[in-house]
């Protein structure tokens, strides 16, 4: 076996698991397809993680990655495409390589849900964005649409209303799911227009986005909002495709685990946002990482 513990995903959960595993003397590798940190790298300022008020998500992620690799975790920047059970452990395959490990901690987190309408994919980076705080500044004095009805959509609309000339907030239901306080704040913004009961059906543009075509959810009325940018905030989906056959998933695709992050497959653990739980925050992700690593260490004993 190449490793005692193989961790898939170098976000908050995965890297914390790595710290615990290497400190317990286990040979540990962390696989990451993009960059360390995961979703938190998009957060300009972390305000609710104990002990580091105001740190940026990127700085926090870099510090965490350094901590894990300084302690001896091996960072492998490659995407695990297949995970299978073999005698006494697991085999992880990337495009060109394969690795074996006695235990695996899956910490692959969540991905942005897409609108799944024509034009969306084509205009990503040319007017379609999944991150208001990343791309908002490109829309100073322009017109944008935010699609969604949860906390992310509401905070995106608020954030963008300080920059853009006009913000349409498009939501398919008559009421928002997001926090009451955010909803109240939205109402005070004169440049935010609520477009309720409509769903997006097409992103329109030539070289760049020029509009968002929408349709009544309970009707047939269609119209096109003239916008320069579209911010998609329609939720997130767990990235659990890799373990679909090895782990029980709930209807929404989240991994069902016991309270030690264990799954129905012995030696396979799930940590972080991708598992069924109440609160998905940095602090619960790191807690999961510690718990999953400790379970893996027990399993190896």
């Amino acid at each position: 076996m190449d490793y005692d513990v193989a961790i898939i995903g170098a976000g908050a959960a995965g890297l914390t698991a790595a710290i615990y595993a290497v400190r317990a003397g286990k040979k540990t590798a962390v696989f990451e397809k993009l960059v360390a940190g995961g979703q938190i790298v998009n957060t300009p300022k972390i305000s609710n993680y104990p002990g580091t008020p105001g740190i940026s998500g990127a700085a926090w992620s870099q510090a965490l990655e350094k901590q894990a690799s300084d302690l001896g975790a091996e960072m492998i920047y490659d995407e695990v495409l297949q995970l299978e059970q073999v005698d006494n452990g697991f085999k992880l395959s990337t495009e060109d390589e394969s690795y074996t490990a006695r235990t695996v901690i899956v910490a692959t987190g969540l991905n942005e849900r897409k609108m799944e309408v024509p034009g969306e994919a084509k205009f990503i980076g040319r007017g379609v964005s999944f991150c208001a705080t990343c791309d908002g500044s490109f829309y100073k004095d322009k017109t944008v649409a935010v699609v969604g009805g949860g906390n992310t959509a509401l905070s995106d609309a608020l954030y963008l209303s300080d920059l853009a000339k006009k913000v349409y907030l498009v939501h398919r239901r008559a009421e928002f799911r997001g926090e009451f306080a955010l909803q109240e704040k939205i109402k005070t913004r004169k440049n935010v227009e609520l477009v309720l009961g409509y769903m997006p059906i097409e992103v329109v543009g030539d070289k760049r986005v020029t509009g968002l075509k929408i349709r009544e959810r309970e009707g047939t009325l269609e119209k096109t909002l003239g916008v320069d940018g579209i911010f998609v905030a329609v939720g997130k989906i767990p990235s659990n495709q890799l373990i679909a056959d090895l782990v029980e998933l709930d209807e929404a695709g989240y991994a069902i685990t016991d309270d030690k992050c264990g799954t129905k497959t012995p030696g396979l653990f799930v940590a972080g946002d991708g598992r069924v739980k109440e609160l998905r925050q940095l602090v619960t992700a790191t807690a999961d990482g510690a718990v999953a690593a400790s379970s893996a260490i027990d399993f190896l004993a």
Binding site: V35, A36, G37, I40, V41, N42, T43, P44, S56, G57, A58, A59, S61, Q62, T133, C134, S137
Partner: peptide
């Protein structure tokens, strides 16, 4: 890139 862009900061060392 930009200073406030987290993903840019993560990409930079690479």
């Amino acid at each position: 890139n930009a200073d406030w862009c987290g993903p840019c900061q993560m990409l930079r060392p690479k």
